[in-house]
């Protein structure tokens, strides 16, 4: 890679790495693994950097790399991990509440298949459109809608088993239609 290209890549990576790491965390539930996922995604981006268009799509490409690595690693881990207790069985009461809420959310996310989890994270954390998620995951928009709907339904069921309620205001119109169609 030419010196100028490398400087551009470093500048880009420094700016984008924190947000990529947060998306990776929501995809895997572990900050150390999220850092590893982000590093691997940036390595892939480095390899592709000379042929990427600078004025568009760099963040989308980086996000796509993070999600791809996270999905690969999730499938890898699923073959050797033993499932833990159902999140609905956990005691959620604690003085602060936030910590338990977060643990519950991450446990419920962990129960989603990797691509459903990716759809939920990209739609509701990264605020991507259905079309953008489809481009990120390399699938059709209908697949994104159905996968997101199933993911939301699974999350809602997990919360409902505990007596709670999960809302996804403003984003679930398409997915709701897909789920009921």
């Amino acid at each position: 890679m030419a010196r100028r290209d490398e400087d551009e890549f470093v500048a880009f990576a420094q700016v984008c790495r924190p947000s990529l790491r947060r998306t990776a965390y929501l995809m895997c539930g572990d900050w150390e693994r999220a850092a590893d996922i982000t590093q691997e995604a940036l390595v892939r981006m480095y390899v592709a950097w000379p042929r990427l268009e600078r004025d568009r799509g760099l963040r989308a490409y980086a996000r796509r790399a993070v999600v791809s690595v996270a999905i690969e690693q999730a499938r890898k881990r699923s073959s050797r991990e033993v499932p833990t207790a159902d999140p609905g069985d956990r005691e959620l009461e604690d003085p602060a509440g936030q910590l338990v809420d977060r643990l519950f959310l991450m446990a419920a996310l962990a129960d989603l298949p990797p691509r459903q989890r990716a759809c939920v994270v990209l739609r509701y954390y990264d605020d991507l459109s259905v079309e953008a998620v489809a481009e990120t995951l390399g699938c059709r928009t209908g697949t994104v809608k159905s996968q997101t709907a199933r993911g939301l339904e699974a999350l809602r069921s997990a919360y409902a088993r505990h007596g709670g309620e999960l809302s996804a205001a403003g984003r679930d119109h398409d997915e709701a239609k897909e789920a009921t169609s």
Partner: peptide, 12 residues
């Protein structure tokens, strides 16, 4: 307990 998904993800 009512949880907004987007807010919960950002809080996490």
């Amino acid at each position: 307990m009512s949880t907004d998904l987007r807010a919960a993800l950002h809080e996490a």
